[in-house]
Design a protein around this nucleic acid. Structure first.
Lengths: 251, 251
DNA sequence: TAATCAACAATTATACGACAAATTGATGGC
DNA sequence: GCCATCAATTTGTCGTATAATTGTTGATTA
């Protein structure tokens, strides 16, 4: 998806009534992007009103939303404090989006990959016994879209993300399903930072299809193995991208 | 029209601490508790003002917060729609708290247990190589508190929750660390619904201590095994609590 | 008579101004 | 030099007004 008009919101002239939800994204992006570093107090609300060109009501609603995400903490008289990054809810899809591919730290990317290697194979195993026919069809459709993408890296990544999200959904585990956001973030990073070779994409696609086959046959063990294989490819991509910093290997 | 005298009477007696937080929790609890079932439109904002005795500003900020949690979705002219439970962010600590032990569905509890059995052993393995001395000391302290709790089930559960939260933190994986909330919820449920036998608590405590030993020796495999053992005990407790209906698989 | 479209109304979305509360820093007294 | 009191500043809350949006209803035409 196109990343909205996050910085358009700051640049808006004056009276533009179409900026209710975008102010939250603008402030959130400014915090995640480092314009308001953790530990600092951001400007008082009346100043933020002028900065973002909206009323204090909107500013306050936005700050309350950011507060629920653990990004800031408001205290009377002292102002709104930007929380430490450790307190940020990194499972929140919007925060990951605001951080963007450029700001995502190597540590966080490593954490996400580790989590995927833990969760996704388990989800694949569960999906083998629980996936509905519709979900399997959706997975196959995602594979087809990945194949049709050809040179379009963005379309390929979108289909890839849909595949993994559907897989988590097909595990019929509510906790796993909620973790889709981190996969979006991981793939989004890979999309922007990499030029994945076509060969590897083909290889990945083959394994994806094999996983769907395993699901259709209700073969949990094989589905789990396929998932591990997919993530191994992703891990290779990532470590290659990050200059093999070495922190990625689990064992 | 809001009765000004009444509101004055409310605020004058003592202090007026953080109206917004209470109102958000109240509406959230009413939604999670079933007073506003999914699919329904909740009363218009001016009515909510009277119901909860606050101004529309506070109501709107609360609704905005609930919207970010996926609980409701506001649309102009039509009102605020209560989203389906599938859209709720069940990883959110507050939502789990609002749902409470009575409302937590068997399906969600099963999902949480499944997720724990997937994540915690992996976290234990990682913690074996990454835990700091301070974290290991904290884990031991939690074990001691569990032992000191004796008959106090609440204190025991609190120490238990602190143990598992510290373990996830010691994995030094940001994603795992954020999942602490679901463990709190699971243990909170077990606390309110069960009368865990003292024998089992002793057995659990022994395994907890063994896990700390494994961490101290940097023995990842053994830590992982201990974690599995702990969760096996928890699973037995849970299935026993829920009338061994086998509800853990599906609905 | 039925279908399409336009005007209306109701409700949310946003804005603005005011006051209350609370915390912190300063200032004066002991 | 320390402590208590006061004032200032900023958030917290409130009330109302205006704009935007959409469901509804009624009219008009084929």
């Amino acid at each position: 998806m196109a990343d909205k008009a996050t910085r358009q919101a700051q640049r808006s002239p004056a009276r533009r009534p179409r900026v209710r939800h975008n102010v939250t994204a603008a402030i959130g992006a400014d915090i995640c992007g480092g314009r308001f570093p953790p530990g600092t107090i951001l400007p008082r609300e009346s100043d933020l009103c002028e900065t973002y060109g909206v009323s204090r009501t909107v500013i306050r609603e936005s700050l309350k939303v950011l507060e629920t995400k653990g990004l800031v903490r408001g205290r009377p008289r002292v102002g709104t404090l930007v929380c430490d990054r450790a307190e940020w809810n990194v499972l929140d899809a919007q925060i990951l989006e605001w951080m963007g591919p450029d700001v995502l730290s190597a540590e966080l990317l490593g954490s996400i990959l580790e989590a995927r290697r833990t969760v996704e194979p388990a989800a694949a195993f569960l999906a083998a016994s629980r996936a509905t026919a519709q979900e399997i069809a959706d997975l196959e459709r995602a594979c087809d879209d990945m194949g049709d993408a050809e040179g379009d890296l963005e379309a390929f990544t979108a289909a890839d993300a849909r595949f993994h999200e559907t897989l988590l959904k097909a595990s019929h585990n509510k906790v796993f399903h909620q973790l889709s956001s981190i996969i979006h973030a991981a793939l989004s990073y890979a999309l922007h930072a990499s030029n994945r070779a076509a060969v590897k994409r083909d290889e990945a696609l083959d394994v994806h299809r094999e996983l769907v086959d395993a699901l259709r046959l209700r073969d949990g063990a094989r589905a789990e193995t396929c998932s591990r294989h997919i993530l191994e490819l992703a891990a290779r991509d990532l470590s290659h991208l990050m200059g093999d910093a070495g922190d990625l290997k689990t064992h």
